[in-house]
Design a protein around this nucleic acid. Sequence first.
DNA 1: AATGAATGAGAATTCATTCAT
DNA 2: TATGAATGAATTCTCATTCAT
Lengths: 203, 203, 203, 203
Amino acid sequence: MATRNPRQAAEKRRQILDAAVVVFARQGFHTCRVSDIADEAGVAYGLVYHYFRSKDEVLDTLFLERWDVLLAAIREVDADASLAARDKLRAIASFIVESYRHDPDLMKVIIVEVTRAANSFGRRHLAKIREAYDLIAEIVAKAQASGEFSGAVTPAFAALAFYGAIEQVLTGWIFDLLPGAPEDYDQAKDFVVETICGGLDAA
Amino acid sequence: MATRNPRQAAEKRRQILDAAVVVFARQGFHTCRVSDIADEAGVAYGLVYHYFRSKDEVLDTLFLERWDVLLAAIREVDADASLAARDKLRAIASFIVESYRHDPDLMKVIIVEVTRAANSFGRRHLAKIREAYDLIAEIVAKAQASGEFSGAVTPAFAALAFYGAIEQVLTGWIFDLLPGAPEDYDQAKDFVVETICGGLDAA
Amino acid sequence: MATRNPRQAAEKRRQILDAAVVVFARQGFHTCRVSDIADEAGVAYGLVYHYFRSKDEVLDTLFLERWDVLLAAIREVDADASLAARDKLRAIASFIVESYRHDPDLMKVIIVEVTRAANSFGRRHLAKIREAYDLIAEIVAKAQASGEFSGAVTPAFAALAFYGAIEQVLTGWIFDLLPGAPEDYDQAKDFVVETICGGLDAA
Amino acid sequence: MATRNPRQAAEKRRQILDAAVVVFARQGFHTCRVSDIADEAGVAYGLVYHYFRSKDEVLDTLFLERWDVLLAAIREVDADASLAARDKLRAIASFIVESYRHDPDLMKVIIVEVTRAANSFGRRHLAKIREAYDLIAEIVAKAQASGEFSGAVTPAFAALAFYGAIEQVLTGWIFDLLPGAPEDYDQAKDFVVETICGGLDAA
DNA sequence: AATGAATGAGAATTCATTCAT
DNA sequence: TATGAATGAATTCTCATTCAT
């Protein structure tokens, strides 16, 4: 009967992706069934397989969509020659925190089900995740070369520490280990940079 | 022959736990079958269920055994009044890194299958994991009170950043994102403390 | 080919129920596997779980379907004001015996696996089974009030004795303790009523 | 250490049987584990296998012990030439009811787990159970020959109806379908005979 | 594009029984 | 006699995926 134009089809696909975010965030990837996603999206579950090859591919899609945005953001920050390294790191931290503030479910899914899921999706997307570390390491490396950062630690190490600190803070919010009021989000951006760049030591 | 006195019975239990470490590290918790553990341990299938209520309980046991050792170590470090906060954090970093050096499979299992597995075992053991964060936060809080650390970030935040940085580094080793040669282990201890306490900024 | 419209889908469900009757009657509920039912029905294993939540639910469904028919029949008999109590009991005995004659496997399953299975399904369906006793007791009570039956025994007791006698006779047929030729079925209806209403005593 | 004389050994065996009655009555045969019996008896569960070949044999033993007593009682009643058939049936009903009054758990186990368990133990002990029916049928047959009972129903049928009525009443007590106060026990004896011999019809 | 009936592989768990001590 | 560690067979149920309509 009702034939759909390409645009409407794309909307259905998006509906499914959006529903998946809700369901994955609420129940976890492994605990939910494909039919839970379909129910949330208000479609028959066969339709999920019309748009995606598998349940995995739904999560892969969510991750890649968002991670590519993150990588682009990092690249853009890095390309801005006017910024000091410290400001670049702050901009990255800010982007990640704002991503969480804007769509906590999506970030929860990406962190919990992918980047921290070392044995499943985390492993599959290792190369992609590593791209982010490498971009950050590059920022550190250049700052060490210019003398802005000390050379006490390797760039790769610094990048892991920086990203690990942010991810842990987001995990803290996700699991209520850390207060997550609106003002805490802004504070967190400063805290990450303060800790990683300035250090805990008294001046 | 299979002997069956109490002392040797306890050894069988240990055998199963040790085999589980090997199997979980190699195949992952969800990917392995209980029979894989039994085979690796060289015991019958059912014996796993004689000593443990479920496959989950095997991992729970491994985690709790080791995590309690970690908590004890942190408490002991904290109790040493002769140490500066920075040295306390270094001692903790050192303990974790040495744990990994001594038994990488066990630490891999604990990190990959528990502390980073936010949706399954990580959630179940959240309170236990949090104990570690709280102990570290306490060290930071006291150092801020004494003026050793600046008060720029909250202790809870600092604890998460510190732990997150270490865990990320270990994850880097586990997945070959970071060189894991013997000398890198010792260097890592310094790097973590240098980054978190000293900061990346040039002096 | 396997067709999949709603009407034929309902047929598959029926196929599974019918196959379950055959398999439960032949092997017993606990001794058969779900795959035996699927094989007998000529459907895939999982389809049983598409239509029923569990193996138990298959038997529950068979029992409830049939028992509700029995209850309706008893109610209908009781509602017929033209019948004497003795004729009502005869009609009930007749209905049960005809049920057995018409589908001995189904009645075998219901009696052996449910109404006599006091510790499992019998217990679960106690309330439903009791409804039948209560309806019969009601018939007896009214007959006692009208003077058709003596008041020597309580209605509840009489109902149990009546039902117990019939069930025991069916059990006798099921296990070849009693001759079960076609003519025996009709005779049994008279015998039950004769025994319970007329008594064994010589007139 | 402590060696046991034959008498003490027999006591352990009895302890296990008594414990089995308690456990089977409480949990049901299939739902309990051998270790539950051992726990109740206060012995290691290996000891159950010292005295009995299997879990089944424990129940078989309980049933056969008690059923042989019942058969002996029926035979003794039948042998008493001074009793009318009606009194013989009353004596049998009385014996069964008193058995229940004296040890309700044991009778519950025998009825629920054996005589009504048509697909398992009931089938295995069919011949033994049938002996009781046959003895009762013999009493009826002789009473019909002597003119005490009418010949309207076959002895085999009458025996099933009589036994079925009693068993159903006991089942009613076991599952609280029928009031089971002390006075009800004595009344039940009369009721069974009144129903089966006298009939429900008003005189 | 959309539906949902049909498929079937896969794994944890239970527990009666054995047997070394 | 007595113990309880050790064995391993056996079966339910889940759910991602396919595909006829």
